[in-house]
Simulated scan of single mutants.
Amino acid sequence: MQNGDGVDDVESASLEPSGHLVVDLLPSARGATHADLGRIERRLAGIEQLLGAHFER
Rank of each mutant, 00 (worst) to 15 (best):
S18M: 04
D9R: 03
S14A: 10
A35G: 03
S14Q: 11
A45H: 08
P17A: 13
G4I: 00
V7N: 05
S12W: 09
E48I: 04
E16G: 02
D9T: 07
L15F: 03
G38E: 12
Q49P: 02
V22S: 04
L51D: 03
A29F: 07
R42G: 01
F55T: 13
G38C: 00
S18I: 02
E16V: 08
R42I: 08
D8H: 09
D5S: 11
F55H: 14
Q49Y: 09
G52Q: 13
N3K: 06
G52K: 12
E16C: 07
T33Q: 04
S18K: 07
D5Q: 09
I47R: 05
D36E: 10
P27V: 11
S18P: 03
G52H: 09
A45Y: 03
D24F: 04
H34I: 06
H34D: 11
G19I: 02
P27F: 04
E11Q: 15
E41G: 05
G38W: 02
D36F: 06
F55R: 15
S28M: 04
M1I: 04
R43I: 06
A45E: 10
R39F: 05
D9H: 07
E48C: 05
F55W: 09
V22L: 02
D5M: 09
G31D: 15
V7T: 14
H34L: 10
L25I: 04
G38L: 11
E41C: 04
R39S: 11
V22F: 00
E41K: 13
P27D: 07
T33M: 08
E11S: 11
L25Y: 08
A35V: 04
A29L: 10
I40N: 07
Q2N: 05
L51F: 08
E11K: 15
S18R: 10
R43H: 11
P27S: 07
G31M: 07
G46R: 14
R57T: 13
L50H: 06
G4P: 00
A32W: 08
E41A: 15
A45F: 05
G4F: 01
G46Q: 12
E11C: 02
A45T: 12
R42M: 06
L37A: 12
H20M: 13
N3L: 01
A29H: 07
Q49M: 09
G6D: 01
R30I: 06
G4A: 00
E41Q: 13
S14K: 13
G6L: 00
R43F: 08
E11N: 11
A35S: 08
V23K: 01
R42P: 00
L44Q: 12
A45M: 03
G6K: 03
D5R: 13
